[in-house]
Each structure stands twice: as structure tokens, then as C-alpha cells.
Design a protein around this nucleic acid. Structure first.
Length: 437
RNA sequence: GGUGGGGUACCGAAGCGGUCAAACGGGGCAGACUGUAAAUCUGCUGGCUCAGCCUUCGUAGGUUCGAAUCCUACCCCCACCA
């Protein structure tokens, strides 16, 4: 059920124009437009293996590659297995911790798996490819590197790079030689990809501009060949704050780290002022469709159609139809919908994020347990008194049905599909009890 | 070291012999409204076997039928003076 996103190159479609109207173009080097117009190209983006999963912050470059492939170009994904061992100083205030090698390995395979949701690696015409720069960096000799690459860089110009300048100035943190040299490694990556794969484009976030142009210069000076670069704008939240972070942490693409439900909710909760931008940047919907969504939203904002569409599109892209339907069921249930029709495995799935405990059937023998005790033991309330007040105030639910009687007892017969008790205090405080037979 | 003021529930702050589980404000929780937002409104906000009982007003004693409130000692804070 992998989507076919690739297609044969058609000269009349212009990638940069697509990026422009979608608000995905920050900057491009001279001649990039013409070079793309001449025929299919190979373009690469490097992904950082600092974690075993990508998060929503990487979505812009990923979508960049998706558009690229849809226009018949070939995307190349560089997994920086080696550069990950050094650490890129761009956009970082402090030196980063260096990761152990086996961790980097593990991260690489996780990331590769996620990209398969977006890119077509099996196309006969323009398949996506992943490359690990260990291929050329692992056995590189220091002296060779200095001669072939180092020679082309002036320290003065390196010191003038924004990412380095800022760190050199800061007396407290400074910059290590490893990080200082990072830009050379990335430039060398581009050179290597250019030679081995005929790659002529590099793309990346706007913080990568300095690294990208360094690569282009190296290719020009060392091989007298032309190469190009494109950067995507930085995605920010409503107050310019960091995108993708919520109270519960980073929003990851890995369903084990961020459940499809939470992922879906992340997009549902996007600020109104940004939803149209995000539709352009993170979905493949066409201009006309997005325009229509915008007018619907202006007329009936409370329906939040663009949010729904945004959440659905991206969730199905990242987690598939299956993930989307899980997220939908979870949304309905977690916002107070009926629990009755759900099967045990669906309940288990919906409430997988929720604190839970277990109880054996014998605990509930004939009399059952006082709901007050159950709620308090589950940690939903601090004391029986508090549980009592919650019920009196109408704020306690069993299996999404309001509990009205303080005296009511929990019995095996109440369990949803015979296996679960779903306790809820207020709108969002859940506790799941598994009934063991 | 001297003088004065003070320690009250999650926080701020009233209370100064019984009607005090303790006003009021903030925060928190819940309900209504709503767009899963904000604002607003309502209720709750020590524990329990809950029309009752038990434990709480810096700590330890005492006076009293009865103490957060009066007395004694101690501990800690703050202000001013040295």
C-alpha cells in the first residue's frame, strides 16, 4: 500500500515555482532554476542521525524531496553516519554530545524506514536512494583529506561563517576543532556525491546555507563543475517558538514515540493563523483545494476544516490509512464518545498512552469494589473524599458514562468488552484498568 | 546585641476565647458554554465509616467547661537601631 509518488520528468513543471507558492523556498543559489529546467537532476538532503526517529521538524525537507521526486528528479538521502559522530555547530549554541557508534547505526536504520513512507525507492525511472557517508569517510586518511579538501578552504572565510563566528565569539562555550571542521566534511560529502552519483543539488534547512555553499565552492574549485543549493525556511510556531514541541515533548514520526493519535492531535491543534501555511508546506494538496479550505475556514471557523484536512493528510502520509483510522477512533473515544462498540484490542490501542493498572477478576468477587476506592487507587484522585466530590460535581466517568452514585461499585460485568475499565476524571484524565481473568 | 513586628490550609492574606475545617484573593480540580482555544459563569479545594466524627492555625507545655485566639518556654523569619 505504498503510494506511488514518483513520475516521469516533465520539463514544464518547475520545482522552484512549486516551492515558492508553497512557502517552502528560503533561498537558492544562482542558476538553480535553469539547471532544474534543463532536465532531471539528482538532489540530496542530509539527515542527522542524532535520534532513531525523525520528528515533525524534518517534515519540510522531506516534503521537499517528495515534490522533487514527483517532478521526475531523483532524491538522494544522505544519512550522516560519520558526520553524526562529529556534530554540526550550525544553529547550536553549545557543543553537542558525541553519540556512540552503535547508537548512530541504530538511528540510521530507523530513519531509513520512516523515509520509505514518503519516497519511492522502487521506481524504475527515478528511485530514491539512501547513502551513508561512511562509504567514503570511514577510510579517509587525514593527510589525504587535508590535501584534497582542506587546501581549498581559507580559515579566514570559515571564521566569517555565521555559525562559526557566533561560537568563536562566545568565550564561555567556544568551539572545538571537530565542530570547526564540520563544514569541510559536509562540503566533502557533496563533492563525493557529485562524483559517485552525479548529484548536483543540495537542499536543507536555512541553517544549512553555509554548509551547502561551502560544498558548491569545493566542487567548483576542485573539479571545476557547477552545483546548486536550495534552502527551506525555518518552520516556527505562532510566537516564533520552536516547531514540533508540545508540553508532552517532541512530536516524532515514529509511532512508538508519538502515537498516531497524538500526532493527529498535534496537527488538529495548530494555531489558526498557521494552518493554511502548513497545508501548503506539509501536504500535497493543490492550490485550488487549499484556497477552498481557506474560504470555508473564514466562513465557519469553528468547524476547523483545514485543521481536520491537515491532520488527516499528514497522518495518513506518515502512519498510513491504518494509523489514520486509529487516530480517528482514538479522537472520538477520548473526547467522550461511546465505548460500547469497541473491541478489546481497539480499546487497548486507543488507551495505549494512558496510565494503566491491572486487576484480577477475583478482586471483584460478588460485591465488587467501591468506585471511590478504585478511583483513588488508580491515582486519579488523592483521597476518597476527593473522589466523592468529583462524583458529586459530575466529573467522573466509567467507560465514558458519567458516574452519578457515590455508592456505586465496580463489578466484572461493567467491563468494556469484558476486559477493560476506563476511568476518567474531567475531560482528559484517564486511567485504564485491565481485568485479568 | 537592642527595639518593634510576624509565623494561619498549595500561595498571599483575614481572624484575636465559643457560632472556625477557619473570611477574601490567587492557583488548582470539576461542571456549563465553546472550536479539543481564550474569555466568562457555577461548584469544589484536610481526612473519614460524611446531616456525624477525627486531625489541623511555627514547636512544646499550661490556663479554661471550651483556644488559631490568653499565658510560659523554645525555634524560625522580617523591619529599624547598634
Amino acid at each position: 500500500m505504498k503510494r506511488r509518488l514518483s513520475c516521469v520528468y516533465k520539463g514544464e513543471m518547475n520545482l522552484l515555482e512549486e516551492y515558492r507558492w508553497r512557502g517552502m523556498l528560503q533561498d537558492s543559489t544562482q542558476g538553480a532554476d535553469e539547471a532544474l529546467g534543463k532536465g532531471p537532476v539528482k538532489a540530496y538532503i542530509g539527515f542527522d542521525p542524532t535520534a532513531s526517529s525523525l520528528h515533525v521538524g524534518s517534515l519540510m525537507p522531506i516534503m521537499g524531496l517528495v515534490h522533487l521526486q514527483r517532478m521526475g528528479h531523483s532524491p538522494l538521502v544522505l544519512l550522516g553516519g560519520q558526520t553524526g559522530l562529529v556534530g554540526d555547530p550550525s544553529g547550536k549554541i553549545e557543543e553537542r554530545p558525541v553519540l556512540p557508534k552503535d547508537q548512530v547505526e541504530e538511528n540510521l536504520s530507523g530513519i531509513r524506514g520512516q523515509l520509505e513512507h514518503f519516497l519511492d525507492f522502487d521506481s524504475s525511472v527515478n528511485p530514491a536512494q539512501t547513502v551513508n557517508n561512511a562509504t567514503w569517510l570511514a577510510d579517509l586518511q587525514m593527510v589525504d583529506f587535508l590535501r584534497d579538501v582542506g587546501k581549498y578552504f581559507s580559515v579566514t572565510s570559515l571564521l566569517n561563517k555565521e555559525s562559526i563566528k557566533r561560537r568563536v565569539k562566545d568565550q564561555d562555550t567556544g568551539i572545538s576543532f571537530a565542530e570547526f571542521s564540520y563544514v569541510l566534511l559536509q562540503a566533502y560529502d557533496f563533492l563525493a556525491l557529485n562524483e559517485k552519483y552525479g548529484c548536483t543539488f543540495q537542499m536543507g534547512g536555512s541553517d544549512q546555507w553555509g554548509n551547502i555553499t561551502a560544498g558548491i565552492q569545493l566542487i567548483r574549485k576542485a573539479r571545476n563543475k557547477k552545483a546548486y543549493g536550495i534552502t527551506y525556511p525555518l518552520v516556527t510556531g505562532p510566537e516564533g517558538n520552536k516547531f514540533g514541541k508540545t508540553e508532552t515533548g517532541t512530536t516524532w514520526l515514529d509511532p512508538k514515540r508519538t502515537s498516531p493519535y497524538r500526532f493527529y492531535q498535534f496537527w488538529m491543534n495548530v494555531d489558526d493563523s498557521l494552518v493554511i501555511d502548513y497545508l501548503k508546506q506539509f501536504t500535497l494538496l493543490e492550490a485550488k483545494v487549499i484556497q477552498d479550505l481557506r474560504s470555508v475556514h473564514n466562513e465557519r471557523p469553528h468547524e476547523r476544516m483545514p485543521h481536520r484536512k491537515l491532520a488527516e493528510e499528514i497522518t495518513s502520509l506518515v502512519h498510513g490509512q491504518d494509523g489514520l483510522s486509529k487516530a480517528r477512533i482514538a479522537t472520538e473515544v477520548l473526547f467522550g464518545g461511546e465505548l460500547g462498540g469497541l473491541r478489546a484490542d481497539e480499546i487497548e490501542d486507543v488507551f495505549s498512552d494512558v496510565p494503566s493498572s491491572e486487576m484480577s477478576e477475583s478482586d471483584l468477587s460478588d460485591e465488587g469494589l467501591s468506585i471511590l476506592d478504585v478511583v483513588t487507587n488508580a491515582g486519579l484522585t488523592q483521597s476518597r473524599s476527593e473522589a466523592r466530590r468529583a462524583i458529586e460535581g459530575g466529573g467522573l466517568y466509567l467507560n465514558n458514562i458519567r458516574v452519578t452514585d457515590i455508592e456505586s461499585r465496580l463489578e466484572a460485568g461493567n467491563a468494556a468488552d469484558g476486559r477493560f475499565f476506563v476511568l476518567r476524571k474531567g475531560k482528559k484524565n484517564y486511567h485504564l484498568i485491565r481485568l485479568l481473568h
